[in-house]
Amino acid sequence: MDSIKGQGGIQMLLTAEQEAQQIVTSARNLKMKRLKQAKDEAERDASLYRSHLEAEYQKKVSETRDNSGSNVKWLEEETDKKIQILKYMTSKVSGDVIGMLIKYVTTVRN
């Protein structure tokens, strides 16, 4: 009788282990899905912002075409400076943003 109870206990442990493994696998898959989604959203936002800046630049260039060439050159130089500043600022905070996204994605809430 004790051997039957022992086998039943072992079977219960094996079943519990399988269930736990399924839960862990499911959590990993969900985490990877969330990370991919966050990356896709970040890339989409960056693309939208980049296209917005390009549209602004093109608008300013078209407005200044009637002006002398020096104004166009000045505008291009200013735009290049702003782009460099934005790239620098982005490089400074990109690590923090990635960390924040990873923390958000990996935090489990009940």
Rank of each mutant, 00 (worst) to 15 (best):
T15K: 15
R65Y: 02
K59D: 13
D80H: 00
L53Q: 04
Q21E: 15
N67G: 04
A42P: 00
L48D: 08
R65G: 02
S3R: 09
K31R: 13
E77G: 02
M1K: 04
R28P: 05
M32P: 05
K5A: 13
V61D: 10
K73M: 12
E41K: 03
G95C: 02
M12A: 15
D2F: 12
V61N: 10
M89L: 14
A27K: 05
S51I: 07
A46N: 04
K60S: 10
M12F: 15
M100W: 09
A42Y: 00
L14H: 11
G99M: 02
I10Y: 13
K87W: 11
I98H: 02
D96N: 13
N71Y: 14
I102E: 00
K36M: 07
M89Y: 09
N110L: 07
Q37P: 03
A38V: 02
T106P: 00
S68R: 07
T79G: 01
S91W: 08
N71W: 09
D2L: 13
G8Q: 13
M100I: 06
G6K: 15
T90E: 15
T15E: 15
Q18R: 15
V24E: 08
G9D: 12
K73N: 11
I102W: 01
R44G: 04
A38E: 00
E78L: 07
I4Q: 08
T25K: 12
L86S: 06
V61T: 13
L86M: 09
K39N: 03
Y49C: 06
D66V: 09
L48W: 12
W74H: 07
S26A: 03
Y49M: 10
E56V: 06
G6V: 14
G95V: 04
V105K: 00
K81T: 03
T107E: 01
L53P: 01
